[in-house]
Write a protein that binds this DNA or RNA. Structure first.
Length: 504
RNA sequence: GGGCCGCUAGCUCAAUGGUAGAGCAAGGGACUUUUAAUCCCUAGGUUCAGAGUUCGAGCCUCUGGCGGCUCACCA
């Protein structure tokens, strides 16, 4: 599949040859002088020494990618960039010698090459702290040109397809993924501190469940078994409560075979936890506390800025019932319309265009998604959900149509879902069987009945509160990104079609 | 899936339907404190693909590909 070599490819390959004939390994296995400092460390070491009257020279050995170069005859400057910072190096021919200066630095190095530099830290005439090179070693030759040093890489598609290039030239992108990592770390810190145990449950599941979603299917050849990539962890984690683990959580990948959008990727990271002897009120308290903790860790405060909105994560958050929220934002009191048909008619009378469904819960959910959700900028818990769309949640005492469930919303996005978990095995079986009727056989969100889950529950499951949230959406929030693709290192994209005439 | 927008040199971008250009990057040269270094010279293109209209298409039309935004659907 290699194309006709362009001139620029030829030039780079010729440089490889020239390096080798000069006895220079373009890909040496290690540094001649082991790295002593990261760039940022070298700068602080110099600043420290500079502040002392009799500061000794600061000797350093650095390594990084050469990202700019300015040659002025027999002296030249370059910037190298490592994981900590960008640092200028100053190279003089009469210091490093002709072979290093003329052949290597001036002629055979390219922007993008990894190099090691040993020398002394100094301040240049213009005041920039730099490393004056005594020795220089090529560490890895780059064969592809770097993007424009000033404009960087802007093309969105290329940024996603070649994230490594995006990362090397756009510092904000690296910062985003560091922030994401710190966010996940802070989540674990909170939960671990609360006595939760982190566990891992199967990604490959013979029966999927725990969410209303369409799964990916796969197949185990030797076992001759159909398997599904999990759409949630829920049913496995709750089995652990049966087994006596009282507080469990999992952070991992879910897979849903649905549309992709700025907030949906086919695989995404989910956090779920389950806590014995807690109900959904306890869960709400925890969600507030956890996200306030994360915000503190990342920003030192609880107010974050998201797409121009100031969002305050400090507890307590607004709590509103689903019924009141829909009355407030859509002006419909769904309790006045006890059947799907009546509710759909009422919605039509209000100018909405509800889909044809006999599932009243789905209609209510669409009112929530279309009319309520976009308005919930500040963190908000919406509570008390219809039973038809909540097969795993416990009924509210005295109201058989409603369950103890909440979803929480921030910045107009649904961020997560929780309930007082249903632990009555007979009720659970009835609810699952009811779902079979409620969702037609052609409904792609219809769930199979998980007999082993029912068996587990029959052994006795403590009352508990469970919670699930999209880690990527939290990352969008804390990284101030409007698209999930900007917080995924390698977002899913269609494959590029290869030109078949392009030769193998 | 629908609608709108985009795709031109390695990168960032130009180009009334009339010879495809610039800056950076690259190659050659000058330059011993520059920093978007500067100066001189050079090379670099199937304008996403295909078809059509036209004397002539990067530009107009159609089909397809990929992407972005958005609507629908969903967690």
């Amino acid at each position: 599949m290699s194309e006709t070599s362009s001139e620029r490819d030829q030039v780079r390959l010729a440089k490889l040859d020239e390096l080798r004939s000069a006895g220079i390994d373009p890909y040496p296995p290690r540094l001649d002088s082991p790295r002593s400092h990261q760039a940022a460390e070298a700068v602080s070491a110099f600043e420290l020494a500079e502040a002392r009257p009799s500061g000794d020279p600061v000797q350093v050995s650095l390594a990084g990618r050469m990202v700019s170069r300015r040659i002025m005859g027999k002296v030249g400057f370059a910037h190298i960039e490592d994981g900590s910072a960008r640092l200028q190096i100053f190279v003089r021919r009469d210091v490093v010698g002709e072979q290093t200066y003329d052949l290597l630095f001036k002629k055979l190095l390219d922007l993008g090459d990894f190099i090691a530099v040993s020398g002394v830290m100094a301040r240049t005439k213009t005041g920039e702290i730099s490393c004056e090179a005594r020795q220089m070693q090529l560490l890895a030759k780059s064969l592809e040109p770097m993007p424009d040093k000033w404009h960087g890489l802007k093309d969105v598609e290329t940024r996603y397809r070649r994230r490594y290039v995006d990362l090397m030239v756009n510092p904000d992108v690296r910062a985003t993924f560091v922030t994401r990592a710190r966010m996940v770390q802070a989540i674990r810190e909170y939960l671990d501190g609360q006595g939760f145990v982190e566990v891992e449950t199967p990604v490959l599941q013979p029966i999927y469940g725990g969410a209303a979603a369409r799964p990916f299917t796969t197949y185990h050849n030797q076992l001759k078994q159909d398997l599904y990539l999990r759409i949630s962890f829920e049913l496995y984690l709750k089995r652990l409560l049966v087994g006596g683990l009282e507080r469990v959580y999992e952070i991992g990948r879910d897979f849903r075979n649905e549309g992709v959008s700025f907030k949906h990727n086919p695989e995404f990271t989910q956090l779920e936890w389950y806590e014995a002897y807690a109900d959904y009120n306890v869960v709400m308290d925890r969600v507030e506390a956890m996200l306030a903790h994360v915000a503190q860790r990342l920003t030192g405060g609880t107010v974050i800025s998201y797409q121009g909105h100031e969002i305050d994560l400090a507890p307590p958050w607004r709590r509103i019932t689903l019924r009141d929220a829909i009355i407030e934002y859509a002006d419909i009191d769904y309790t006045q319309f006890p059947t799907a048909e009546e509710l759909a008619n009422a919605m039509r009378a209000m100018g909405h265009r509800p889909e044809n469904t006999s599932n009243r819960g789905k209609l209510i959910d669409s009112l929530l998604g279309n009319h309520v959700e976009p308005n919930l900028i500040q963190p908000t818990f919406v509570t008390e959900y219809p039973i038809e769309i909540s097969p795993l949640a416990k009924k509210k005492a005295g109201d058989p149509t409603t369950v103890e469930r909440f979803e929480y919303f921030i910045a107009g996005m649904e961020m997560g879902n929780a309930f007082t978990e249903l632990n009555d095995p007979l009720d659970q079986r009835a609810r699952m069987e009811w779902m079979q009727q409620l969702y037609g056989a052609d409904d792609e969100e219809r769930h199979p009945v998980d007999e082993d889950y029912l068996l587990a529950m029959s052994y006795g499951m403590p009352p508990n509160g469970g919670f699930g949230t999209g880690v990527d959406r939290l990352a969008m929030l804390f990284c101030d990104k409007s698209s999930i693709r900007d917080v995924l290192l390698f977002p899913h994209l269609r494959s590029l079609e290869r030109d078949e005439a392009d030769g193998e």
